[in-house]
């Protein structure tokens, strides 16, 4: 599944709902679905606020299902991240004036099984998230 949409805050909820609808075929638990939606929301919000700094731009969202594994990628062609180590620190934010909590990366790390960020200053950022559904693994044993 692939979606390309404008970097506008109205589309954050659209991105979450689209991914939730797509992965619902795996019959995730409510908790798993919430974790996936939250991680997607964080990645898309980062692209809009930090990648494009709330200016025009396109966000590319890809989602793939392999068995009971969900692979997600959120990509922007915005300004990129200079210091990834710093950006990944809990509570670090480059935009405290916008009341950002600095928890986006920490939430993504905690809500999925594998989390990677690739970023090149001036070129953009790509976040890859992988989550294995436990509920599905259990269900398939029966």
């Amino acid at each position: 599944m692939e979606l390309k949409f404008s970097a506008r805050s109205e589309n954050e909820s659209f991105a979450r709902v689209a991914v939730a609808a797509f992965v619902s075929q795996l019959d995730p638990t409510v908790e798993e679905l919430t974790e996936i939606k939250t991680a997607v929301s964080e990645a898309v919000t980062n692209a809009i606020i930090h990648g494009y700094e709330e200016q025009e731009g396109q966000v590319l969202l890809q989602c793939r299902i392999e068995g009971n594994v969900i692979e997600l990628s959120v990509e922007d062609h915005g300004r990129g991240i200079e210091d990834l180590e710093e950006a990944r620190q809990p509570l670090f934010t480059s935009k405290p004036e916008l009341e950002r909590s600095g928890m986006g990366f920490t939430i993504m790390e905690n809500f999925v099984d594998s989390f990677e960020v690739e970023s090149r200053p001036g070129m953009g950022t790509r976040v890859r998230l992988v989550k294995t559904l436990k509920s599905q693994a259990l269900a398939s044993q029966h």
Partner: peptide, 13 residues
Amino acid sequence: SFMDSSGLGFILG
């Protein structure tokens, strides 16, 4: 029904 880190920022603010 849903909240992410933006909600945390609002509450902390």
